[in-house]
């Protein structure tokens, strides 16, 4: 495979018992590209994301990241390989503050010989958090506040700042604005623009057609567990995408798939 591919999947498949949630997904994305994944509820979007991020183990198929074949045993593996994910269900611990959440599961520590009782480097994590927030333009009044006391938009920004703080090879956002108000959505979209300018590749799972058309380069449509379309933004419009989502149309190269 060529070197400018960030991610490639081949015949990626996931069955939950008898349910074929994802069947034979062949997906590719290039460096610096922002790709949207669209589809109805239960079309396999989140399932696809969970296989790439190691949250679940795929039934079959192969995944390459920057040309290397990868088999993630868990989400931490994927993260160590450089895939940062903002999950649909906010993966934040409500009772912890912002630095704690940013560094959850990869705390900066010292005295590491103490094993599970190794000491937390609170100061280092706070400084990195502030730097990360500044880089993404996320504004939070007090980073020592527990997440519980923050608005939905701020929480989402924390989740996104987490991905941006750790210079990642691939960012995945699973419906990042689904639960947000207009102003908060705009804030998140701004961050996505920032990532685009910085050349950071992004997979955006979204139901929001306006958002997708505005933010991404390419749209991939899933329907009933299968990829049914792969459209460049210039070659399509909202109506066209909807036709693929609902099943009125199926992409030429995917004929016979769905």
């Amino acid at each position: 495979m060529s070197d400018d591919l960030v991610l490639k999947t081949e015949e990626l498949t996931k069955h939950y018992g008898g349910v074929h949630a994802l069947v034979g997904a062949n997906f590719e994305m290039k460096k610096g590209e922002h790709v949207a994944i669209m589809g109805d509820n239960g079309a396999g979007k989140s399932t696809f994301v969970r296989q790439i991020t190691g949250v679940e183990q795929r039934t079959s198929g192969k995944v390459w990241l920057y040309g290397d074949e990868v088999n993630f045993a868990g989400p931490l593996d994927a993260r160590e390989a450089g895939i940062e994910t903002v999950f649909q269900t906010l993966a934040l611990a409500d009772d912890l503050d912002v630095p704690d959440n940013l560094f959850l599961g990869r705390e900066k520590t010292f005295a590491n010989w103490l094993g599970p009782f190794r000491l937390l480097d609170y100061k280092g994590m706070r400084n990195d958090t502030i730097a990360g927030l500044e880089r993404t333009g996320v504004k939070i009044p007090n980073i020592r506040n527990s997440i519980r006391n923050m608005s939905g938009g701020q929480r989402q920004c924390v989740a996104i700042a987490r991905t941006a703080t750790f210079a990642s090879k691939l960012t995945i956002m699973d419906e990042p604005t689904a639960a947000l108000g207009v102003q908060e959505t705009a804030q998140v979209e701004n961050i996505i623009h920032t990532l685009k300018e910085a050349g950071e590749p992004l997979i955006l799972v979204s139901h929001n057609m306006r958002q997708v058309m505005e933010l991404v380069d390419r749209i991939v449509v899933f329907r009933r567990g299968r990829m049914v379309a792969n459209l460049r933004k210039e070659d399509t419009d909202g109506q066209d995408v909807v036709a693929y989502i609902t099943g009125a149309k199926t992409g030429a190269e995917f004929e016979g798939a769905a």
Binding site: D94, G105, R106, E107, R118, L120, Y122
Partner: peptide, 27 residues
């Protein structure tokens, strides 16, 4: 001291706060 200043303590709070998030964070 353990609960406040070590990884063990932090993860204990994280699990009680949002077990799913803790798992997804690789704990």
């Amino acid at each position: 001291l353990i609960m406040r200043y070590t990884v063990y303590g932090k993860h204990t709070y994280a699990i009680g706060s949002n077990e799913e998030a803790a798992r997804m964070s690789g704990i």
